[in-house]
Amino acid sequence: MAQNCLPGMETSAVSVLKRAVELDQSSRFQESLVCYQEGIQLLLDVLKAIKDESKKVHYREKIKGYMDRAEQIKEHLNKVKEEGKYHEQIKIADSATGFSYEALFKPYIREGLTEVWVEDPYIRHVHQLYNFLRFCEMLLKAKCNVKKINLLTSQDEESSSQQESALAEIRQSLQSQDVCLDIKYSSTIHDREIRFDNGWIIKIGRGLDYFKKSKGRFSIGYCDYDLRECHETTVDIFHTKHTKKT
């Protein structure tokens, strides 16, 4: 590995591990564990590339410290999951960025995920339908094996044909990826909740529609939702042994 790559690798490792510590201190343990694991891997790559023996000793000590903390967090998470008491809250500030679906859901979609339930009354208008499509795309790209997505939403009385047509197209497209989309409508649904069959429950105050409208079609954040500003909302994350199915 070229030595001139080292500064960039070190900078990346420091950035990811700094974020891990911040999340750890904020008791956002599941997210911090993911960052610790990514940062440790980056440091291991740095360790392989450096030649200076004193630096090697320094990095080995750093890696051991981060690995010990990651193991402590993993044990803590396993314990609270077994007890069915896991609860984490993320507060997204007004105009905050960095909260794409990938960023928000990534820590919770790895453990043998095969089925998802989305309850959101506002998958009706065009931008909301695109949000749901992006959520489905995120699941397909994730390290899991989703075979079924269940959507419970309300029907758009003013343009139900557009809503039904869009959802039918999403269903057909998912079918080509060997994923079944089951769609049900409710006139009384108010709660917004996403449930995974690996035990995770994510409740977002605004549902999937927590992004602000882009300032233009050629503005930063139009395509990449990590760069899109968000509305203020709260995300509550739970873990239970058994996910209730409807």
Rank of each mutant, 00 (worst) to 15 (best):
Q89C: 12
D45C: 07
H239A: 07
E157V: 08
E83S: 10
R124A: 08
E119V: 01
L181Y: 09
V126T: 14
L44W: 02
I149R: 03
Q37M: 12
H87E: 14
K147F: 04
Q30L: 07
I73D: 08
T188Q: 12
T240P: 00
E10D: 04
K51D: 14
L47K: 07
V235E: 06
M138S: 07
T234Y: 00
G221P: 02
G8H: 06
I204T: 05
S187E: 14
S187T: 14
Y210N: 05
A166V: 10
A93S: 08
H127E: 10
K147D: 01
V57I: 13
A103K: 03
M9S: 10
D94S: 11
K143S: 08
I237G: 00
D236Q: 12
W117I: 07
T11E: 13
S154Y: 00
A93V: 07
L139D: 02
S214D: 10
R110D: 05
I123D: 01
D236W: 08
K48Q: 15
Y101R: 00
Y130K: 14
L181I: 09
G216N: 05
E111N: 13
R171N: 14
D224Q: 03
K147L: 03
G98T: 01
I90S: 01
Y101G: 04
E102F: 13
Q30F: 04
R69F: 09
E10Q: 12
V235M: 13
G98W: 04
I50S: 09
A49Y: 03
E61C: 08
D52W: 02
Q163Y: 04
K143Y: 01
Y130W: 08
S173M: 14
E71R: 11
F218G: 01
C136H: 10
E169Y: 10
C5K: 11
N145F: 11
S161G: 00
I149L: 06
G207E: 09
T240Y: 05
F211R: 03
A93E: 13
D24R: 01
A166L: 09
Q172E: 15
L43R: 05
Q128C: 12
S165Y: 13
H231W: 14
T233A: 10
I204N: 12
L44Q: 15
G205M: 05
E31W: 03
D178W: 07
R195F: 08
I237R: 02
A96F: 07
F99Q: 01
R124K: 08
H190T: 15
E169R: 13
K245F: 11
D52M: 02
R124S: 10
Q128T: 04
P107Y: 03
I237Y: 02
S27E: 11
Q177F: 09
I40M: 06
G207Q: 10
I170K: 04
Q163V: 02
C35I: 00
Y101A: 03
H239F: 12
L113P: 00
I90C: 04
S100T: 03
P121I: 06
L42H: 06
Q155Y: 02
E111Q: 14
S12T: 09
Q175A: 13
K51M: 11
S165A: 15
M138W: 04
H127C: 11
E119K: 11
